[in-house]
Design a protein around this nucleic acid. Structure first.
Lengths: 226, 226
DNA sequence: ACTAAACTATGACAAAAATCATATTTTAAT
DNA sequence: ATTAAAATATGATTTTTGTCATAGTTTAGT
């Protein structure tokens, strides 16, 4: 069992508010495990009995629409927490979490989180700020979905993937998403997404080589995304 | 200056956690005032120095998109609080609040809210649950915007207006929204919205008499909305 | 290395939605 | 009460987006 003191999650999440003593308790009760790409961490409607720390890897939060398609609501990266809203609301999860890469995840039981929550004001405030940030982001995504067309949303999404998850040495987007997953972020048919990527490729905005996507003209993409 | 004990906002919001003593403090520091239909309570980007209790009336929370159009993100009814996220995040507001009817609103200064927040766990938990609820709702709206077509979204919105804000004696929707505002909820062009309302009217799903909208076939609307 | 399955790509077409134009009706201000 | 402005309505047209069909490519499992 590793200690939590040096964990990446402490840098980015509410866990940074924990003191040495609390960190020991955390290290003592947590369960660390590996999630393979494509595996489900939790499903929409599940009752969670704790939260998850994402030590490594990226996952998607999705919701199944009545038309049978999954919508990606948010991507969660290394260093972030999963299941906070559900824990605070004392409700089943509203979204499913599925690994986009092999992940390392720690599960922290609810009882321990609630102890921190009730006894450490900085911790609870930190968690609230996370939820508040998620709300702000969700509102912004909502506005973009309602007001921008597919081309604009695709441009914005490519830039988001670039800025948030970085690029490899060859300049290609580090986070690998299938065309279907990109479509599921921007809320469009897979064929439409593929067609637009092809168009962006032809007009020099991006470069498609195999499954790799390289943003060639970020300035123009930014203009497109507005 | 009226007391806060009997206020409707206490029934529905985090304020229900306040005790008698705290209520007196609240009554003492609050400022009650009237907002006329169409008036702005706060604007996107404003720094709020407190929160608002909606004693009466309904307002819309909107965000200006880069295409110059306003998107309605949420409707806030009597009994709810405004500005909670902004207060917790210590950030400017992400949305504008505009009265859809004449309203009565109380402003509660930040210092007092933070006192309650820090000293009354039930209050802070209540406020967090509100934000969590908003996040869940925002995610759901986001999925609908991404995955449903305009007709389905219109049907869903009419039902939402019916269920959340009720009807007059003649069965017409109580909350009066312009066609442009309905369009701004469902994220479509005003003409498209008008055309579909007309279509719903002709096919007997709703009845349009003047500006009034009466839902005639809720079952079929529900089927449409999925 | 081979094969099936999954993923990507593209064309043809249909459907949905936006835009532009123009009436008509309603509302608000004088 | 009159008039201008705003809101609603509808037609014509274009653009955007989705659907279906099919072919090529990549990936994973034996």
């Amino acid at each position: 069992m590793s200690k939590c003191e040096q964990c990446i999650v402490r840098e980015f999440s509410a866990l940074k508010a924990l003191n040495k003593d609390e960190l020991l308790k955390l290290a003592d009760c947590k369960t660390s495990y590996v999630v393979k790409k494509g595996e489900v961490i939790f499903d929409e409607g599940d009752h969670l009995d704790g939260i998850f720390c994402v030590k490594d890897g990226v996952c998607k939060l999705t919701k199944l629409s009545s038309n049978g398609k999954d919508q990606i609501v948010k991507l969660v990266a290394r260093g972030e927490l999963l299941g906070q809203r559900s824990l605070i609301s004392e409700e089943p999860t509203n979204l499913s979490a599925v690994a986009l890469e092999d992940m390392t995840v720690c599960f922290v039981p609810k009882s321990q989180v609630m102890d921190f929550f009730n006894e450490n004001n900085k911790f609870s405030l930190g968690m609230m700020k996370n939820v508040c940030h998620d709300l702000k982001e969700a509102d912004n995504v909502l506005v973009n979905l309602a007001q921008k067309n597919v081309k604009e949303r695709l441009a914005a999404t490519l830039l988001y993937l670039h800025d948030s998850f970085g690029v490899n040495e060859d300049g290609s987007l580090k986070l690998h998403l299938s065309r279907e997953e990109i479509s599921s972020i921007i809320g469009t048919a897979t064929e439409s997404c593929i067609r637009l990527l092809s168009e962006f490729n032809k007009s020099g905005l991006i470069e498609l080589s195999g499954k790799k996507i390289i943003l060639k003209d970020k300035k123009e993409l930014r203009k497109l995304a507005e």
